[in-house]
Amino acid sequence: MSDAVVKKFMFVNRKAPYGTIYALESLEVVLITAAFDQDVSLVFMDDGVYQLKKGQQTKGIETKNFSPAYRALEGYDIEKLYVDKESLAVRGLTEDDLLVDVAVLSRAEMGALMDEQDVVLSF
């Protein structure tokens, strides 16, 4: 695949997990996309930051806890995880509440990053 064109793909995650199917669907598409050796970025903003909250225990709602899979992303060579600073702040969360290492960006930085992409997928 060395002569294949590498595009910049961004997945924008803005929904909380479990209440809707968006978070899980996004994760599945991300894992599939990883097979195509593209330049993949994941953005977590607004309620999407809740997807990365530590300590999720879904036994009581009889739903699969898919949060451990975010820690597997590194093994899929998906290492560009960005979290919106303001979204964390208004939810009373800090980087320590998150289950993976991320880069925390301002809204302006996030907007600029979005502008650089070839493909943006919204969830």
Partner: peptide, 15 residues
């Protein structure tokens, strides 16, 4: 057990 997903073949091979 750790990640709650079955790894893709490429990921499995590397790991």
């Amino acid at each position: 057990e750790e990640y709650q997903i079955a790894p893709a073949v490429r990921v499995l091979t590397k790991a």
